[in-house]
Amino acid sequence: MSAQAILQRLGAPLTVLVLLTLWELAARALALDGFPTATESLAQLPAILFDGQSLQSIGASLARMFAGIGLALLVAVPAGLAMGRNPTLARMLNPLLSAAYPVPKAALMPMVMLWFGVGDLSKILVIFLGVSLPLLYHSYHGAARLDDKLLWSAAAMGMRAPARLLRITLPGALPEVLLGCRVGLAMALIVMISSEMIARQSGAGDLLFNALDMALYPDVYAMIVILAALGFALDWAFEHLRLRLVHWAEPRQDAASGGNS
């Protein structure tokens, strides 16, 4: 096996190892209470991961996250596709979306809490808002880039508008929609935690913010590691799913290298 092949295979674990070593050395050198070593923090992982209540809390957060993503898929994808195929609708909604995009969604939590209470609904809505915008934008651009001739041909053959949206626009825009999903997934994880910052009944925020309040810094960092690992696992799984669904849209290796043989 060549050095390049070894590096390709072991590159990611090596990067993690280097980062952990740097973390360990920096924490030992600085010796700050609020910055525990990597070994101290990683030692807390079993206590969290083998505790039923902690797992239940993380599960509750994930359930809300997936509910928010599901809702966003139902609303934002059709809306984005419609915008992509209807310039008037796009002109009407684009300024609104541009204004809404930079607003930190977690900052809306106190307002949402006033309207919808302190339960799961508020948190799901905030996650929905956080995921919707990237999904909407990617769906819009995916649909807008679609070759008009495909839709004209389908219309000429008698296909109605809803069928065209479902059978031509959606599959054509799918690579872009799924990219939006990938961005949305990362966003959902961020908003999932920040939505639990103000009020919570159960969730990963319990573990993170309570540990912070009690100055249990190794627990805080362990939770951050768990969230990072969760983000990595979700992204890895989604990327595999995405490649299976839209492998036809990926640039071919032989084409990319100029078809050398």
Binding site: P110, G117, V118, M197, A199, Q201
Partner: peptide
């Protein structure tokens, strides 16, 4: 009792004002 944990007392004032708790 339906328990909800808050980060500080000020958000609990808002929650009481909005009839959430």
């Amino acid at each position: 009792i339906a328990w909800t944990q808050f980060q500080g007392t000020a958000p609990m004032v808002q929650a009481m004002l909005s009839d959430a708790i």
